[in-house]
Structures are given as structure tokens and as C-alpha cells.
Write a protein that binds this DNA or RNA. Structure first.
Ligand SMILES: NC(=O)c1ccc[n+]([C@@H]2O[C@H](COP(=O)([O-])OP(=O)(O)OC[C@H]3O[C@@H](n4cnc5c(N)ncnc54)[C@H](O)[C@@H]3O)[C@@H](O)[C@H]2O)c1
Ligand SMILES: NC(=O)c1ccc[n+]([C@@H]2O[C@H](COP(=O)([O-])OP(=O)(O)OC[C@H]3O[C@@H](n4cnc5c(N)ncnc54)[C@H](O)[C@@H]3O)[C@@H](O)[C@H]2O)c1
Lengths: 256, 256
DNA sequence: CCGACTTTGTGCATGCGTTCACAAGCGGTA
DNA sequence: TACCGCTTGTGAACGCATGCACAAAGTCGG
């Protein structure tokens, strides 16, 4: 399921010119939410739900209904006024826009605590992200299968990534090794990197990096605690109010 | 380093009224970057660097220099014109604003693949986030120490969280259990939650949730691959250009 | 003590993302 | 078929974040 092309297209469902223009214009924040909608919709489909309104879906996804409709409008008009959206239709269109019509082979580098968890995780393959390669420098690990995949030595990274058509590289090495691993992945042709090491990676322009930084997440939480405690001290009136759900789907949500 | 209070303050360094107003106004995106600056600065301090200019620091943190200065201006004016910033001074002020002058005790719920990795991770305690409690439903796990901490049964969550003054709860359970675990954490008084389960949590207004969603991260990467592949097909001229570093420190970066 | 040079801090403009509000469109019903 | 009520899709307004560009403020050398 790696390649399967018509005359010039890449995926099973070719993008129409109109969609191409749309895809260019989708805000990154909306892309992140589309992925969330997709999961919610998939869950609904599994439960036999066939249709859904923007109101219902937005509640389940924890966002504003208007925002949801705008997000969906970025990918086209697939709803029916007065009725709502067909779950299946929406799922397939979001998948198409997100490029999920083909599998994206994943390589994990650094098979330590975190790398083991990732390699053993069953949630990726089912969603089109099969882990197909594992790398480490530790000679004791090389050859040992983790989650069904044998660990390769980091020096084989170029050959193996090319061979297995790895499109996403996950960095789970200690911080000092991260940049060098990143460089190797890039020169092996990997253009997407998910980085767990608390390091700012330098990459060429054609490579996309996303980072998962637990320390930063915790510090953001800490900031909110501090701010809240501080407010509580100032206007000494408890400070616990329960109301709407102040969820931060991807962030950028600051309470007034 | 836990408590040391004045007359009504919570932390070692009480916030001045001016700082309070500032803290309220700091954009969430800036808070996330401040945490990154903090780490870079800590690294510099460890290497004996005592002063740094906005230009140097911004490069190391992978952001625009003007943005960095603006971010720092949110917390006050601690630079010296013509010279730059004193690393120590900046570190201590960022720590103060982020509420890192006190420890934040962390509880991990769900000691499976991921929970083990988190419990064993040495990066948290050093940064003021000691893991002090672990929970699971699995009777085989209860009592067994992981990363030096014995696992408690989930039913003890309220008592243990209260006793150990847990301020951050980390959810690493399977998705179906996540909401119920979240509810329990909340009723145990935990106001900050870091959620690894691919589920949209519903929480009261006074609780802060951050989520780490690997599937979403991968799908965002997938989207960019698709868009890029699509562009390459359209204007058939290679498509690989190397230039500045297009890093997405926390997201919201879309290339024009 | 002064002047030249360096770097900060920030007002302002620009652009992006969110939210509101409503016209357009569709299914159901009489 | 024509009307009614419901829900989508989106134009427009708003607000927030980013980046520019420069005055203010400091250092250093003479
Ligand atoms: N474990 C966690 O829960 C956790 C949480 C947040 C962040 N992180 C970050 O994730 C990264 C991995 O954490 P961990 O706990 O799994 O560390 P770990 O020490 O358990 O594992 C690191 C692995 O990387 C391998 N490695 C070292 N240098 C390498 C190289 N050049 N090429 C390939 N492999 C190499 C090591 O042999 C080891 O197996 C770290 O950067 C850590 O800061 C981990
Ligand atoms: N492992 C990964 O790399 C990874 C990656 C991304 C997301 N996740 C998500 O993180 C979560 C955990 O993943 P995992 O691989 O560690 O799963 P896992 O199945 O290995 O571990 C889950 C643990 O949670 C415990 N548990 C179940 N119900 C519970 C409850 N009600 N209260 C307390 N504990 C309970 C189980 O006993 C088990 O020990 C899942 O939601 C998964 O989707 C994991």
C-alpha cells in the first residue's frame, strides 16, 4: 500500500484542483482540530451513528460549533442544510485532506523507556502509521525485536529508511543525540520528524518538525496554577467556579 | 524547597502587583516559549555562560529575535541595553513567572507502557516536577515499585493525592478509562491534568487540561506531506528548497 | 566627560484565527 | 407545490499574535 499512482497523483483519491487550493489555505490550528474531529467521527461510526450535526460534533470534540463549521468548510461543503453531516462522508473527506489515504511508515530512534512504549503501542498501525523500523546505538539492543520489529543499529538508518520508505521519524534519544539523529534522518530522506527530546532541532526548510515536550507542558500547567493561586490571594473569594468546559484542545486558549 | 511563605503568598518569591498584572496578560503561546527559553538558558548557565543577547538566545531557541524580546518584556525589563541579558537573572525571573519556585508533585495514572516510561523518566524531578504517586487498576501492579515509587490502587487516588499534595495528574490509561480517571483526579482536588489518552476530556472550569496526542501530531505531519507532494506534482520542479529553519516551536506556523 | 556603538523595549501595522450572525438551502409537511 | 423550520456555510468584525523599525538607554574607548 506504499505506492499506487495514476499518471501523476500520489494517493488513492486524487485531490481536485479546488481541493488543492483549499488544502493550501487550511490554518494549522484547524488541521489539528480536523484530526480530533476525525477521531470523534470514527468513534461515532463504530457505534453505528450515521449522521451528526455541527452542534453535536462540536460538543463531542470540545469546540465551538461555529469554529467546527468553519474548519469543515476549509475542506469543502459536505453537509446538508437542515440535516447535518453524513459521518462516513465526513470521515473520508477529512482522511483525504489529511493525507491518510495512504500509510505513513514510521521509524523510532532511541529504544529506551519511551522508545519501547512507542514501539509497543498498538494505536498507530490501526490509524495508518505502522512502525516499520527501530534504531538504537546500544549494541545490546540491536537485533532484539521490540513490538515485533527488530532493532537496527543507528548506522543503518539511511539504508533501512530508504528501503522501508519511512516517512516519519520519531526521535526518542537523549537530548545530546537528538540533533545528530535528526540530521541522519534528514539525509536519509525523512521529511517529517516528531521529536520527544527537549531540544530545539535545526532542520532544512523542506522538513517538518513537531515536538512533544512534556516539561514545557508541565510548566504551562504550573504557570496556570501560579496565576490562579495569585488571583485567589488577591481577590480573596475562594476562586473555584464551575461552568463551561475550558478545554484547551491545542492551546492558544487563555481565559479572560 | 516546598514552602516558605510571607503572610499570604504561596511561593518563595511573592509576585509584585505589577507582575501580577503582567502574568494575567501573558499570551499562552508566549508562556510555552518562555519554558523553552528557560531550558536553553539553563543549559547555557550550566556551560558557564553568564550573559546573552536576544539575538543569540533567539537563535538557540529557534524563534524570531523580536518575538523573543517581546516575550521577555511580558515578564518585565531585565535586560541591559547595549549588553544583553544576565542568564541567571533571566532564569530566576522566568522560573518565578512560571511558578517554578515551588515543586509540583505529579501523579501518573495508568502504569502500562507509557506509564512505566513516565515513572522511570529522570527528567521531571530535576525540573521541579517530582513524581510522587502512581495508580493503576491492575491488582498485579499494585504494590510494585516503578521508578522507586510503589503503585497504588486507583481507588486510593483521593486519599493519596490529598496526602501527597499532588498538583498535576497525568493520565496514561486506555481511552475508555480516561474520563472516569479524570473525574476522580478532579474530585481529589487536582486542578492540572496532562492527558495522553486520545479522548476529549470534559472538566469543570477551574481545571486546566493539556493533552498530548501523538495520533494528531502524526496526522498533522501527514497533512504536510500530502500538501507538499501535491504541490510537487502541480508545479513539477523538484520541490526541495533549503533555506532558513522552518521550525514549528509550538505550532501555528504555516508556510506561505 | 563625551561620542559612537550596541542592544533592549515597544508602538504600530499587518496578518491570522476566532466568533458572531444571518442568508442560503434542504427536508418535511400540508 | 408551497410553506416552514432547521442547519449549514460564510461574510464581516473583532481580537490576538507576530514582525518591523526605531527611539531610548546603556557600555566602552578615547
Ligand atoms: N521517558 C519519558 O517518559 C520521557 C518523557 C519526556 C521526554 N522524554 C525524552 O525522550 C527521550 C528518551 O527518553 P527515555 O526515557 O526513553 O531515555 P532512555 O535513556 O531510556 O533511552 C534513550 C535511548 O536512546 C539510545 N540512544 C542514545 N544515543 C543514541 C543515538 N545517537 N542514536 C540512537 N539511539 C541512541 C540509548 O541507547 C537508549 O536506548 C529523552 O530525550 C527524554 O528527555 C522521555
Ligand atoms: N504507549 C504509547 O506509546 C502511547 C502513545 C500514544 C498514546 N498513548 C495512549 O496512552 C495511554 C496508555 O497507553 P499504554 O500503551 O501505556 O497502554 P497500556 O495498556 O500499556 O497501559 C494502560 C494501563 O492503564 C491501566 N488502567 C486501565 N484502566 C484503568 C483505570 N480505570 N484506572 C487506572 N488505571 C487503569 C491498565 O491496567 C494498564 O496498566 C492510552 O490511552 C494510549 O492511547 C500511548
Amino acid at each position: 500500500m506504499a505506492s499506487q499512482r495514476g499518471e501523476g497523483e500520489t494517493t488513492t483519491t486524487p485531490l481536485e484542483p479546488a481541493d488543492r487550493e483549499r488544502a493550501r489555505a487550511i490554518p494549522e490550528a484547524a488541521v489539528a482540530r480536523l484530526a480530533v474531529y476525525l477521531r470523534v467521527l470514527s468513534g461515532m461510526a463504530d457505534q453505528g451513528v450515521t449522521a451528526v450535526s455541527s452542534e453535536e460534533l462540536s460538543q463531542a470534540a470540545g469546540v465551538n460549533a461555529a469554529k467546527l463549521r468553519k474548519d469543515l468548510s476549509y475542506i469543502g461543503s459536505y453537509g446538508t442544510r437542515g440535516v447535518g453531516y453524513d459521518v462516513e462522508v465526513l470521515v473520508s473527506h477529512i482522511e483525504r485532506i489529511l493525507g491518510l489515504t495512504r500509510n505513513h511508515s514510521v521509524a523510532v530512534v532511541g529504544i529506551g523507556n519511551l522508545g519501547h512504549a512507542l514501539a509497543n503501542y498498538g494505536g498507530f498501525p490501526g490509524r495508518g502509521f505502522p512502525v516499520t523500523a527501530l534504531f538504537d546505538v546500544d549494541a545490546d539492543l540491536v537485533g532484539i525485536p521490540v513490538g515485533g520489529i527488530p532493532v537496527n543499529h543507528i548506522d543503518e538508518i539511511t539504508a533501512v529508511c530508504r528501503e522501508r520508505e519511512v516517512s516519519i521519524g520519531v526521535i526518542a534519544t537523549p537530548p545530546p543525540a537528538a540533533q545528530s539523529v535528526c540530521d541522519r534522518l534528514v539525509s536519509a530522506g525523512v521529511q517529517c520528524i516528531l521529536n520527544f527530546a527537549p531540544v530545539v532541532l535545526q532542520v532544512p526548510d523542506n522538513v517538518e518538525v513537531r515536538k512533544v515536550d512534556l516539561a514545557v507542558e508541565m510548566q504551562i500547567l504550573s504557570f496556570h496554577v501560579a496565576r490562579r493561586a495569585d488571583e485567589a490571594v488577591h481577590n480573596s473569594s475562594g476562586g473555584v467556579s464551575v461552568g463551561n468546559n475550558g478545554l484547551g484542545v491545542d492551546g492558544m486558549v487563555i481565559r479572560p
